[in-house]
Design a protein around this nucleic acid. Structure first.
Lengths: 337, 337
DNA sequence: CTGTTAGCGCTTTCAT
DNA sequence: ATGAAAGCGCTAACAG
């Protein structure tokens, strides 16, 4: 069967305590002993039992990641970043509760999922209800948010309001006046503040430029390409005046819109300028102007901050606003005057 | 601090053994006692310690998922499927070793990652070296492969050779004779058999149709859109005769190729027919003809098979070939004669 | 139906 | 520098 610390101890003719110390690189072990223990452990193929360690220390060396999806561009990449940092620091990654944003109120995120199971929690691109926050607070566990802010938590993400402002300003600078916004769906906006922040950034920028915010120019997708295309259809079908530019809350929606435009023979950027947020892998290929952000780095830094907190490093906790950058490509052009 | 089974036992005035039984729904507990225990547990907010349970039972109720990426279409969706099934059966999901396919030989997948830590392993879209297989065998742990076969393991995936045949046959049926293949890169083909299987399916089909396999018509991408576009460029730059159709080993590469074609003014399908494999979320929007498969379902079934094995269900282990389907869309057309 | 008693495999005082 | 021993919180015989 499985070899335990005791097997190693016997074979190395020391106590289990010494084996434990030697293997973990603690001081107060003579070099000779340490070497012998290491050799025996290797020879026997000893692997410590995380359950036993966890039980004895109260810490699991495991971090939970709470996220609604993995198949969205930002989410998957942020997860990669978290994974990189965790792995490099010897932590495991427990994936919690995919399955989308809640329908109604039946998300089952409870203390149970978390308590005694993980040392810290990364929350990716989702809000937490008041009661969820309370449950979490009870556990005393460090939490960091990635992709968007959560009240009372450290967060690593861009300033979404500012990013939306930059995107919108770019369109305005190009002379556009009739600008539409492809925003998140109801579910997105209930579950996560970021879609709303982007919409607000857009609205505020339009207002301060003295431009009209037509309600029919604000259309909901759900941050996917498919819904982006569908929502684009609704914009294109609008009677009366058409927008000359669209700010999309995500590149995935922007790409969906571009596909739909193409299907209808609407030329980009001649007939319509499009700007998104993300810099999705496909965006450079599609020539999509966008606000680029680096989710892998977000994930890495979030995990780093979290682990510092888990390990009790002083000054560990800090809010981080990550940089973003406008990438001008072929999907936006000056409005012909 | 944290409430333990003993706290519950005391408060309910029973032994810890009874609490344990009551909470796990075991028989031989009087309804009255069970109710009281349940009530006390709820009142105290008791949550069992997975470490303690794991140590006592030797099982962790956790399944590992080994995968090189999460940001590829198939991978992310398969992961969703695995997660769904695991969650519905009360298992946790430990994400192992992202970070791409190995460069050289330095992937660190060892017994250590796995032993005493998980009850079973899902291997997603990657091969395992002989030594890795041996390490795994030592653990006696059930393993199932998703997305492609692994020697000696149960697998859930499509028949990739047949899928490639179907795609290629579709092109041939449309009258194409000069057909190129956008295949996987060196790293993909070393680490995973699927790219090779698809290339072989293509080659075999071409041969049995009596068509010429020109070496310069076989170009390597790496299963991403970006590399698909780059590889497409190499095809388009070929001197002399051009292919009239391309079979792409994945939709992501096919989409990359379509973007590149568009950039160069190459019309699809008028100048070039394109078929992929996957039915990526963007494919329907792009009008890409493809061989559709359902990775979420693959993941679900793989997890189901794995858990049956973990739980010792008889006849649990079975190989599964999943269905696929040719979806004819606008990227393929009859070759004008 | 319920309680008692050993462990599970490790860490961690406290001695020595 | 090393060992002995007491837990960590739970489950699983075994008694009763």
């Amino acid at each position: 069967m499985s070899v335990s610390i005791e097997d190693v101890a016997k074979r190395a003719e020391v106590s289990t305590a010494t084996v434990s110390r030697a293997l973990r690189g603690l001081p107060k072990v003579s070099p000779a002993t340490r070497e012998r223990v290491l050799a025996v452990a290797a020879e026997l193929g000893y692997v410590p039992s995380p359950s036993a360690t966890g039980l004895a220390t109260g810490r699991t060396k495991t971090v939970g990641v709470l996220m609604p999806f993995v198949d969205r561009w930002y989410f998957g990449h942020a997860l990669e970043g978290v994974d990189q940092e965790l792995r490099s620091r010897g932590y495991n990654l427990l994936l919690l509760s995919l399955g989308g944003y809640l329908h109604g109120n039946k998300r089952r995120f409870t203390e149970q999922m978390v308590r005694k199971q993980i040392d810290g929690l990364v929350v990716l691109c989702m809000g937490l209800s008041q009661s969820e926050l309370e449950e979490l607070a009870k556990t005393q566990m460090p939490v960091v948010a990635v992709g968007g802010p959560i009240e009372g938590c450290v967060g690593v993400h861009i300033d979404d309001f500012a990013a939306a402002t930059a995107a919108t300003t770019h369109l305005i600078d190009l002379g556009h006046r009739k600008i539409a916004h492809l925003r998140g769906g109801v579910k997105d906006e209930i579950n996560f503040v970021v879609p709303g922040l982007r919409a607000e950034g857009f609205a505020a920028t339009m207002r301060s430029a003295g431009l009209e915010l037509r309600p029919e120019f604000s259309v909901a997708g759900d941050f996917t390409a498919a819904q982006g295309a569908a929502a684009a259809g609704r914009i294109f079908d609008l009677p009366g005046e058409k927008p000359t530019a669209v700010f999309c809350g995500s590149d995935e929606m922007a790409l969906g819109l571009m596909f739909e435009a193409r299907r209808r023979g609407i030329r980009i950027p001649e007939d319509l300028s499009v700007v998104g947020i993300d810099n999705h892998d496909f965006s450079v290929l599609a020539g999509l102007t966008t606000i680029a952000q680096d989710p892998v780095e977000h994930g890495r830094q979030a995990a780093a901050i979290l682990l510092d907190a888990v390990e009790g490093k002083p000054e560990a906790i800090t809010q981080k606003y990550m940089p973003f950058q406008l990438l001008k490509r072929e999907s936006t052009a000056r409005l012909p005057s």
